[in-house]
Design a protein around this nucleic acid. Structure first.
Lengths: 181, 181
DNA sequence: GTCTATACCGCGATAGAC
DNA sequence: GTCTATCGCGGTATAGAC
């Protein structure tokens, strides 16, 4: 059921996902669902936390790889993604009910905080190795990288095509390589 | 009523906005609404188109200003924004019903296409003036700039604070200034 | 043009049987 | 633990009076 909820939250968001739809997707009965979870909110909480953990694990695969900072960041950016489906986490920030509920927003906030922190660490490593100029701000750069990804999804979904996402990522890589020595 | 719909679409999205809520906000009766509009979808269409026009007009204020390319882009990026409310247009890309309906998606697609085109023109001007290196790709760079804005909103809403948005914008400006001569 | 009444459906949850 | 029945509410739209 949690897995079905993750999928539905991704596709339809919190407001657009009904308990009944979850039960259908999970082939679970109504009584079963309300026995294991107090309601929609708790189920969503479990699903969001699981998605966050999966997302971090997937990102760490690229972050922890070998190569220069730019290479690892590029690997992360250019990883295979279902661009037109958007980001499971980023999508939830459009949901007022998620943003308004501290319990639901917390795992979203933590996931992005973690990603920005990891990216900042990698940028800092790039500075130490002399790859990036000493003046480059890791926290700013990390936020920019994370934003390009999230914004790339938005532009792609608006356009109905992967192209804007690819362009945005390529443009960012150009800029990163431009400031690298 | 269109104005009320714009506001509700911004706050709650398409799925989260009901005809009844629009009527309440606009202090209009039910019969009145269904007399002037065939239903929720047509009303949304009018609202989205109007928001698109307003967004383009607001952006053009910075785009058409004086100064170098980087200055005009920076003015655009650092314009006063209600960051935590998110982008009226970008928000709609999370709405499956909007993305699935060509009539509703079209004005969203056009708005972002216009913004990317204008940004690419400005980047191209920066190349001609010698501000940017000849190797810089205007389309890529434009997509990156637009993505940072949209992604900045996402990160800010996840964080519950303007900070990630400000960081992402500052990081992008750093990179742009870094590649500028 | 705008009003009220009505309809039908699905949401989100609860109750109590098994 | 899971099932079915039921509930109250609001979404979205139509009907027909004024």
């Amino acid at each position: 059921m949690i897995r079905s909820t993750q999928e539905l939250l991704w596709e339809r968001g919190y407001v657009g996902t009904s308990p009944k739809a979850i039960q259908l997707a999970a082939e679970a009965g109504q009584g079963s669902m309300y026995h294991h979870f107090s309601g929609k909110a708790e189920l969503a909480r479990a699903a969001i936390e699981r998605s966050g953990a999966e997302l971090r694990a997937a990102a760490e695969e690229q972050f922890a790889g070998s190569g220069t900072a730019t290479e690892r960041i590029t690997n992360y950016l250019e990883r295979d993604r279902e661009v037109l489906k958007g980001c499971r986490m980023g999508r939830l920030t459009a949901d007022p009910d998620v943003i308004a509920d501290p319990v639901l927003r917390a795992p979203v906030a933590e996931t992005f905080a973690w990603i920005r922190t990891r990216l900042a660490e990698i940028v800092a490593e790039g500075k130490e190795s002399g790859e990036y100029p000493a003046g480059l701000d890791p926290d700013r750069t990390a936020a920019t990288i994370a934003a390009v990804l999230q914004g790339g999804y938005v532009l792609a979904r608006a356009d109905g095509s992967d192209e804007p996402f690819e362009l945005a990522v390529a443009g960012l890589v150009d800029l990163l390589e431009g400031v690298a020595s």
